[in-house]
Computed example of a mutant assay.
Amino acid sequence: MVARWTVLAPLLQAVTAGRDLLDDTISRLTPEAVAAELVTEIGDHDVRLDLTFAGRTTSHLRTDSDVTVSLDLADAVRGLYGTGERPWPSLAVRTPDPELDERGIAGWFHSRKGLADAVQQLLSALRPGRRDLGELAVEYGSDKWGDLHWYTQHYERHFARLRDEPVKVLEIGIGGWEAPDSGGGSLRMWQRYFRRGLIHGLDIVPKTVTGPRITAIQGDQSDAEFLDRLGRDLGPFDVVIDDGSHFNDHVRTSFHALFPHVRTGGLYVVEDLQTAYWPSWGGHPDAPATTSMGMLKSFVDGLNQAEVRDPRGEGTYLERTISGISFHHNIAFVEKGRNDEEGGPAFMRTLY
C-alpha cells in the first residue's frame, strides 16, 4: 500500500516549494516517473505532449498527433498540483505546416479553430479550476450532496483550509454495496477537491476503484488491530471520514483506533449520526454513552475537563487531543489539536 506513493507523495510535498527544491525532487524521482504520474492524472487528449527537463524531452499522450504542446516538466507539475494561477512561461505549440488547398484561405483559417480547442483542453486539464464540493459530488455521483444528505456545505466550511495542502485522506466506506466495480464516487470527488491529496478508501468487500491518487483497501472497520496497522502504515492522516456501516459499535471502535493516527490540525468526521437513535443499528432514542452520538457528546465535557477536575491536570489522551467539535444535522467534525488550557482557579468554584 505504501509503495504506490513513492513518487506522488514527495512530489506533492515539493510542488509549492522553491523551484530548486522541486527540480531536485524531480531529478531524484526521475523525470520519466514524474511525467508518467502527471499523464495518468490528466487522462487522454488529442494532442501530443512533450515534457522537457534539464535539456531532455520525453513525449507522452498522442505521439502520432500532428499538434504538439511543449512544456517544462516542472511548470506542468506546478500547474497541475500547485496553488494559484500562473502563466505558462515554457509553453510552445507546434501545428502542421500550413498548406493552402482548394478550401482557400478562409477554409484554412476555419480548419485551425479545432487546433486551439484541443490545445486548450489539454492546458485546462493541466490547470483544473476550483469547483465547489456540491458540483463535484453531482459530477462523480457522491451521495454527500442531494442523495438523502446535504453534507458538502459543511465539508466546504471545515476543509477549505486544507484544500491546497498535500493531505492524506482516509474514507471508511467506498459505496456500491457488494459489487466490486461499483462505488467510489466520494473518493473521486475528494481527489478533485484536494488537488495535492492522496485518497484512501476502506471497504469490507474488495473494490476495484482506481484513480491517479486513489487507492482502495479491503478491511473491517470493527477490527481495531487492523485499523491500527492501517494507520501506522499509511498515516498520519489529515482527514478520516467514517461513512461505513454506521453501526454504533463499529463507529466507536473505528474512532478509538484511528483518531491517534490523525495528524495534529486534522479532522475526524462521522457521518449519518441518525443511526445513534435507531435501536436496530445499536442506537437508542436518548443516545446514551454506548452510541456514536453519546461518545461524541462525552467529548464536549472533555474539552472542558480542566473545569471538572484538577484545573492544571493533564486529562486523558482524548481530553488532551480533541480541540474542537462541530455538530451539524447527522454529521460531526472532531478536530485534532492541543487542549491543555488550565482551568479557572479552584477558589472560584466555591466563591459564592
Results as ranks from 00 to 15, higher is better:
132 D>N: 13
74 A>R: 13
93 V>L: 06
326 S>L: 08
292 S>Y: 05
92 A>D: 11
197 G>Q: 03
210 T>I: 12
56 R>K: 14
257 A>L: 00
226 F>R: 11
60 H>P: 01
265 G>S: 07
98 P>N: 11
322 I>A: 09
125 A>W: 03
167 V>E: 00
254 S>R: 01
210 T>M: 10
125 A>Y: 00
332 A>Q: 01
192 R>V: 10
346 A>E: 14
22 L>F: 03
180 P>I: 06
328 H>P: 00
103 R>Y: 06
243 D>Y: 04
39 V>S: 03
282 G>N: 04
247 F>A: 11
316 T>E: 00
24 D>P: 02
184 G>H: 02
158 H>C: 05
56 R>Y: 08
251 V>D: 01
23 D>H: 12
327 F>T: 08
267 L>M: 13
156 E>G: 06
88 W>C: 01
127 R>T: 08
257 A>I: 04
85 E>W: 06
188 R>K: 13
100 L>S: 00
185 G>M: 00
346 A>W: 13
56 R>M: 09
258 L>M: 10
291 T>C: 12
204 I>T: 08
73 L>G: 14
103 R>A: 12
29 L>D: 07
201 G>Q: 05
140 Y>T: 12
265 G>V: 02
55 G>Q: 11
132 D>C: 05
176 G>A: 06
308 V>Y: 14
104 G>C: 08
258 L>H: 02
312 R>N: 15
107 G>C: 01
275 T>I: 04
260 P>Q: 00
277 Y>P: 03
22 L>C: 10
272 D>Y: 03
229 R>G: 12
324 G>D: 08
11 L>W: 01
108 W>L: 15
110 H>I: 11
77 V>P: 05
23 D>G: 13
87 P>Q: 09
197 G>M: 05
188 R>C: 08
7 V>C: 07
162 L>C: 04
255 F>K: 03
12 L>A: 13
248 N>C: 15
